[in-house]
Every structure is written in structure tokens, then in C-alpha cells.
Write a protein that binds this DNA or RNA. Structure first.
Lengths: 316, 316
DNA sequence: CAATGCTGGTGCATTTTTGCACCGATAAGG
DNA sequence: CCTTATCGGTGCAAAAATGCACCAGCATTG
């Protein structure tokens, strides 16, 4: 019907001068970079090369004459304009996801059991909203949560997925490090008012709440802010540490994701926190190709990514 | 943070087996083809080659394992699945248009006057909703509508844009044909009940309502369904023809976009309609590069495209 | 301080995509 | 009937996008 003459050709001319049509796929790439925070991460997620990412972001920015990212040595960080775009593109993604699910028939109807094991502290204070959300998203999946502190039940096939605090996951399991959480020193305000702290040298009436070490002065005390304060009690469980500190037993060195969310505790000034341990999400080699296991692990990894500030004690 | 090992690599593997990630830009192409009805039209609109369109649609269909178009000799027609997708992608387009306008700073803030001339019949019965919509979309544009039936006021620079019934627009104007409207024969039901029609041969008490021809039997009567019915009256204006037919004066040969929308008239059986004249949208050569003129002409051309069924008498 | 692991950037070879010039087929106009 | 215009499809060459193998810079770790 419409000839590509007259108006259209003029329109093309004006297109040459100024702005080009937006490539919708560039928005997808932008989204991935914004979410992942790095070109490499986005490339991995999209299954393409990272140089493709950087070049296309660059081309998009120069075509639209707008700066969306600050290139920091640590990766890509959104500018103000980028933040604005992120929000808008997010809803585009929702629409397109809906299209993929309903029209293109890619609805992932996950079914079956997922037996997952993790520490109760992580389950309760970090992942619970995400676990619930996952179960709501995939109602046919039966999620079994078995809290535990050791890797054994994964090895023994008592669980499909383990989220564990470890630095060196065993060879026969596959997965990825999802965070390195930080720890700080906490006590109740009343305890701090009542007892006296001290510097490097001896003195001070306060004391540490012990973990399960049998040595009188564990390494974490020696390297701490108050190496000469005595250690009292043995509480091998993070949540009992929190409870003991709340009850005014002493100073607890606990993960920031526990201490910072506990209103009855406060950090010992100056309140610095330090990286403590890694958290890995792991599964068996033969389960990693299962869609529901993959989806679950991705969802949990994403949850950790979103709570990174809390886990690294930057939310205080 | 996240390594491209373990989970991700497995995810890539499963991606190879089955479905690929959707290229968002393919949706844009799909939309253009669905709207234009042909690969060439879509290609023109997007400023790319038509073979690119056909190949990408083909690739998209085979990747998603879904047939979206029927390839007819007249172009691409949506399948049921395609119709469904069209609706969904439409809202994606709205989102992205919003992004372009607000974030990417492509908000077309059209300003200034547009003086447009067209026949009153077209203005009232075809374009009025679109004219209003255009003015609401671009509140800074002052649209002046001057109804008229000749091209003179465009040549004399009394108008910027003309929408005219013509077969051969003059060389010094640029634009495009927007439709070829159809005509049919109409009369009021009471008239048809009272007067007698006839076939090719003489006879019959009904008569035609005349246009402005001075000859006793104009060509359009001779070629018509009832070449021997007499002609009475001279009504040179389409809307007065409608009114005369409604008042029971006789049979009017008028555009379908007038007759079909007039409840007080009905087509003379068997109600066939025939192509009658072309409608062009035209402007001066030196105005066609103006953004607001371009935008206006594109909007009106699109309006005609959407009302094609009405204009070709296929809505009856 | 050295080692590691991450980040983005770049030149180059390869692959992929695109545009172009055709073709045959189909409607519609005269 | 013939002419014209438009449709989609295809082989081929040019152009563009991509992947790859590197590099340097920076942060963290030990």
C-alpha cells in the first residue's frame, strides 16, 4: 500500500541526521549490565562475549547521546539517567517475560521436590522471603528445608542443594560462591553502659561471648579489637549468641546480617566490620542439569546478590 | 562476583539443546510486519531491506517453533497465535515509546501551525477522531482545518497539507496515495419499498440522484447497475447527496464510508461496491522535511490505513 | 610485597547479518 | 488482453557484528 517514496524517504533522511531507531535488544543488554553490575557478568548471563556487551552499551549510549553507566574499575555503575532507565526497562522485561511464558509457550512448569539444607540463621534471617517467593512462583514444587550446619547430608544424598559457610567446597560438588559475609562486634546498649571496654592493652570489665573453641583465647579474639578481654561461656550457635548478647551476657562477634537487624544490639564503636566467611550454594554434579535445581540455585544466588549490602555490613 | 562456571555453563548447555533467548528486536520487526501487512512495508517503515525482514521473521518463527504469519501472495497475514502476540507486543511498544520520549529525550515537542485542507466529508466522517487525537497528543500544535474541494489553496500557500481526491497529483507537490475508496448505490428503505428498480433494460420507477454533470446521462450511470433509470436533480456535494437520499429523493451513488455509516440508508441489492477514486495526502516540497508536517502526514496516513475496510466498503 | 582474580579495553580473524539485484507470481488497472 | 505495480524469495558480495586472545588497571588476599 504505502510506497517507500516521498515521505518515507524524507523521514529516512532526517533519521540519518539525528537519532536512530532504538534497537529493542539493546535494552535487554542494558538491563543485564545494570543488574549484574559488570559487562562480564551480563555477558555470562546472556551467553555472549563480554566485549560484545561493552561495545553495544557504548554504541547505544552514543546513539542516544546519553550516559547510562559510570565505568569504574570495579565494573559498570548506573548513572542517574541509567537508574531511571532501569526502572522503565524493568517493566518492559516483565511484559516480554509474560509473552515468552504465555504465547511462546516457555512457561516453566517446575514440578517435583527440592530438598535444600542451610543453617537456620541463613534461612530465617536472609533467605526466608525468597524461599516463600520461590514456592509461590512455582506452586508445583515441594520445597523441603532441612536446617543443618554440615555438608554431610548433601554428600549422603539427604539433600539436593546445600547453602553452606565454607571456603573450600569439596570437589565432588558443584556450585558457586554467593557472598562473603562480614562480621562485627555487638552488645546490648545496657551492657555497654555498665561494663568498661579497653584498648589493645589489658583492662576493661567487659568480656566476649565464647563460641565453641576449647582453647582459652581463640584466634578471633586475639585478632580482634579487644584482644585482652576474657572469654566467657560457649555458645556454638549464632542465634544463641544473639540471644545471649541481647540478654546482656557480653560482647558477641556475629555476622552483620544478624547484628544489624537486631534492634536490641548495637555495634561496638567504631563499628567496623570485617569479611568473615564465604557462603556457597552447592549441589551434586548430576543434579545441576535439572531445570528445577538450576532455577532454584539461580533464584537463591540472585537473592544473595540483592542482599549484598546487608551481608557485607553496609546497611548499618 | 558470579563466575561463569558451574551453574551458568550448564545453563548455557541446556540453552543449546532447546530454546534460545528471545531477541527483543525481533518483536519490533514482528510488530512492524503485523501492522503493515507486508514485509516490504515493514522494511520501509524500519528503514531496512525487505529481505532482512522476511529472514528475521522466518528465523524467529523457527526459533520459537510457532507460526505467526500466513504467507499469502498479497503479503503477510497474522495467524491466531500472531494476533495474540500482536496484542501483547503492542503494550511493549507503548512502554518503549514512553522510554524513548521521557528518558532518551526524544519527546517530540511539536510546535507551530499546521494548516490542512480536505473535503468536509473526509474531515467529518473519516479523520475527525484522528485529528482530535493528534491535537491532544501535541497540544502545542495549532491545527487549522479548512474544508475545500480543490487543490488551489495548497498551491497558493493557503494550506500546508492537503488531503485530496485525485488520480494524478501535480508534480510540484509531494506525498503519497493513502487509499482508493469504493462507492456503492444507496437509498432509504422506504424509497426502495415504494419505487421499482429494473435490470439492464428500460423500466422501473426509481431514479438516480444527479451530481453536477450537465450531460443528461453521465458515464457513471451508463456503467452502473441501472443504466436506464433517469437522473433527477443536481447535488454536487456528497453530504447533500446523503441527505437527499435519506429524504427519499432517489438512489445515490456515494462513497461507502458515507453510506455504510448512515443507518437511514441501505445498499441496493446485491450491494456490490467498486473502487472509485484515490485519496492523496500532499504537501509542498519544502515543507516535507519539517518534523511536524512529517509527523502529521504519517499520522493521517496511518489513520487511513486503519480505516481501510471502511473505505473499501468491506465493513458493511 | 607478591599473587590472584576480577574489572574493562583492543586488534584481528571469523562468522553472521545485511543489502542488492534479480526472479517468478499475483492482483489490479486500463 | 496486456501493462503495471506489488508481493515474497534467493544467490551473492559487501558490511557489520561477534568471539577470541590478549592487555593493563585495580582490589583483595595471604
Amino acid at each position: 500500500m504505502q510506497k517507500c517514496t516521498s515521505i518515507a524517504s524524507y523521514a529516512e533522511e532526517s533519521r540519518r541526521e539525528g537519532k536512530q531507531l532504538v534497537n529493542w535488544d539493546d535494552l535487554k543488554i542494558f538491563l543485564a549490565v545494570a543488574r549484574e553490575g559488570s559487562a562480564r557478568g551480563a555477558a555470562c548471563k546472556l551467553g555472549i562475549h563480554h566485549s560484545t556487551i561493552t561495545r553495544r552499551v557504548e554504541a547505544f549510549e552514543s546513539a542516544q547521546k546519553i550516559r547510562l553507566f559510570d565505568r569504574l574499575p570495579t565494573g559498570y555503575t548506573l548513572t542517574a539517567a541509567g537508574e531511571e532507565l532501569l526502572q522503565a526497562v524493568g517493566s518492559v522485561e516483565d511484559e516480554i517475560n509474560g509473552i515468552e511464558r504465555h504465547i511462546l509457550g516457555k512457561d516453566i512448569q517446575l514440578k517435583g521436590d527440592i530438598r535444600v539444607t542451610m543453617s537456620d540463621a541463613i534461612a530465617i534471617h536472609i533467605l526466608m522471603p525468597d524461599l516463600v517467593n520461590f514456592m509461590e512462583t512455582y506452586p508445583e514444587v515441594n520445597l523441603e528445608l532441612c536446617t543443618s550446619y554440615d555438608l554431610l547430608n548433601l554428600t549422603k544424598r539427604e539433600a539436593d542443594v546445600a547453602i553452606r559457610i565454607t571456603e573450600n567446597p569439596p570437589e565432588h560438588l558443584v556450585g558457586r560462591k554467593v557472598c562473603r559475609y562480614h562480621c562485627a562486634n555487638y552488645a546490648s546498649p545496657s551492657y555497654l553502659a555498665q561494663y568498661e571496654l579497653a584498648g589493645d592493652m589489658a583492662g576493661g570489665s567487659a568480656h566476649w561471648i565464647g563460641w565453641d573453641s576449647t582453647v582459652p583465647i581463640p584466634e578471633w579474639v586475639r585478632k580482634s579489637q579487644f584482644p585482652h578481654l576474657p572469654v566467657r561461656g560457649r555458645f556454638n550457635h549464632p542465634l544463641t549468641q544473639v540471644a545471649a548478647a541481647r540478654a546482656g551476657l557480653g560482647i558477641a562477634r556475629i555476622p552483620c546480617f544478624l547484628g544489624d537487624r537486631e534492634p536490641a544490639l548495637q555495634r561496638i564503636p567504631p563499628g567496623t566490620c570485617e569479611p568473615c566467611h564465604d557462603i556457597w550454594i552447592l549441589t551434586h554434579k548430576d543434579l545441576v542439569s535439572t531445570v528445577r535445581i538450576q532455577t532454584f540455585m539461580d533464584a537463591m544466588a540472585e537473592a544473595f546478590r540483592q542482599k549484598r549490602d546487608l551481608l557485607e555490613g553496609k546497611e548499618a
